[in-house]
Design a protein around this nucleic acid. Structure first.
Lengths: 326, 326
DNA sequence: GAGATCAATGCAATCGATTGCATGAGTTTC
DNA sequence: GAAACTCATGCAATCGATTGCATTGATCTC
């Protein structure tokens, strides 16, 4: 029996007679034969593998997304390659994966990458198939799965406002390239709409780590006039903030309310349980993966870039409380 | 110029004259040529890729390890493929990766896999190159990178003992297959050596999730006689435990001391800051990867299985306190 | 019954990098 | 000056799955 027949049994069974099909399947089981992916990739020019690039896999926010990506990709028969943060020359770096036929498409979770530098990259002449999923995306040409960061930030501030807070500070995430952070923009927008004072000394640039939350706490504790509530750009900073404020005898929510962003696993078990804007992380991972695979397999209806916006959800817990009027 | 020469420039430059070498390198830069990994893999029978299998990438314990794995593998020129928990038939599943030449070796972080079922798997006739790294490993045939779980558990109990606690409970992780959990064994050993009462109703089987920590809290809160200290099998359960005990008006460390295990990121910023046995997670990931790649590249001195044991470290923080005698 | 149609399968080229062997040019040795 | 040797490079086979085309044998049509 020729290799051609075996190949057809595995990829297009209807073109082979039933008898032969059975014999092949039997042999496959007995010998434990498995297709050589390298050979198949070489011939087909498709690796059935996607690459994910994220800054900090160790970060619980990203790792949950990655888990969803792996689950979805695996169920669709795709392998998942991971890289950490891409270096200074992402184009060169990614070429190593795409021109070299290791991966068919890219899931980009790293907002610090200048996407304009990616346009030049291509797999086999065509544009590099990719889906981006991160906080902000000024480039409308790129397929993306994002959440309603700006609106969610507004709702976070609204929640504090509704509790009676008027003196509201913010710890922002890092600003990407020249684009302002969307959560920061949402904060400013909400403050403006409520005609609240935006005091620049109440806005701190953080970097989404607990460390920067701690630093923020030390800063706020040293202020003469402090905000009564703080909107933190993510939960980890909120946790660092609350923990360190406590060292300064500033108790949350007694003395200050704090709202976070993301709803990472520990948020609900933190003390106090963290009020936060939940990001649908599993959905982000799953939908981004679905979208990318659909693009790769060519079953797209439109040629316009995909743009999915998921909704965040306010989780009210214990770290925010009505303004205690002194 | 022939393809052979180009190939030699890239893999074995000394066999090519300097003039030709320069011309090739020049052309490579100009055309943006990148080696086709699929073709190379097919010819070399080596994919320069490793596969990691871990239960729950979303778990902060594993994701930190994965981050280290990716960093180390990347710097050595290897790609990293990830899968989630392997299914019922790991052998069949892994064949899809190894016989098919997608990955050269396996980093196994899933302690729930019956390793005896893996012996049958092979890549190209030889045994499947793999390194295992998880809590307990009864199979001495397997290369492994582990921590001193048993001794660390003893030290955790010792710490509570030193603070004056005698009534010490435990929330254990799940027992794998028929093997007892090492942390549980360490707990029993320490209790025995101090001639302390091991009350079976103070030992709860958890599953390393915050949920099971919460369940444990509800259980302990309902007891007539409670332990004064609890050794939790990991930090997440400890956090769920402390948070939920508080709902029952049992404050940690005032009313009960809790020591965790792992030292995940939030541990030091939890309220109270968690006393815990730190696991060197970055090291686990890095060393396991190093070991696997060394095996793959054949630069091993001995043929015996590698067995690296890393030391845990006691981090004393606020969740444990001297016994408050009523 | 001769020619047309169809299904099942084999043949052989292809994907691109690697590598043992062969070739040819240049250099050394006695 | 001829044999021996070295070095750089090309030739061609190889890895294993896929697929257009050819072949074979069987069935159908008039």
């Amino acid at each position: 029996m020729s290799a051609a027949t075996v190949s057809r049994v595995l990829s297009n069974p209807s073109r082979v007679s039933e008898a032969t099909r059975d014999r092949v399947n039997q042999a496959v089981r007995e010998t434990g034969y498995a297709i050589n992916q390298a050979a198949r990739t070489l011939r087909m020019q498709r690796a059935k593998t996607i690459l994910t690039a994220m800054p900090g896999i160790g970060n619980p926010f990203y790792s949950t997304i990655l888990e969803a990506v792996v689950a979805e990709a695996t169920s669709r028969g795709y392998g998942v390659l991971v890289t950490g943060r891409l270096g200074d020359d992402p184009a060169r770096w990614l070429s190593d994966y795409f021109l070299s036929n290791r991966a068919d498409g890219l899931l980009l979770f790293d907002g610090f990458l200048d996407t304009r530098r990616l346009h030049g990259i291509s797999g086999q002449g065509a544009a590099l198939p990719m889906v981006a999923a991160y906080d902000e995306l000024p480039d409308p040409q790129i397929n993306s799965v994002i959440t309603d960061n700006l609106q969610a930030a507004e709702r976070a501030v609204q929640h504090l406002y509704d509790l009676g807070h008027r003196r509201i500070g913010h710890i922002s995430g890092p600003s990407r390239n020249t684009f302002p952070n969307e959560r920061l923009v949402g904060y400013r927008k909400a403050m403006f709409e409520h005609r609240l004072d935006v005091r620049e000394d109440w806005i701190l640039a953080g970097d989404y780590t607990m460390e920067s939350g701690k630093a923020a706490a030390d800063y706020f504790a040293g202020l003469k006039e402090r905000p009564t509530a703080i909107f933190s750009g993510n939960d980890e900073m909120a946790i660092g903030l609350i923990a360190t404020l406590r060292r300064h005898d500033i108790e949350c929510p007694r003395d200050i309310s704090v709202i976070g962003f993301d709803d990472i696993g520990v948020a609900q078990n933190y003390a106090p349980a963290l009020t936060t804007m939940r990001q649908p992380r599993e959905q982000i991972g799953r939908i981004a993966t679905e979208t990318l695979i659909n693009i790769l397999e060519g079953n797209r209806t439109s040629l316009d870039p995909v743009r999915v916006v998921l909704r965040s959800e306010l989780m009210v817990r214990e770290s925010t409380a009505p303004l205690h009027r002194p």
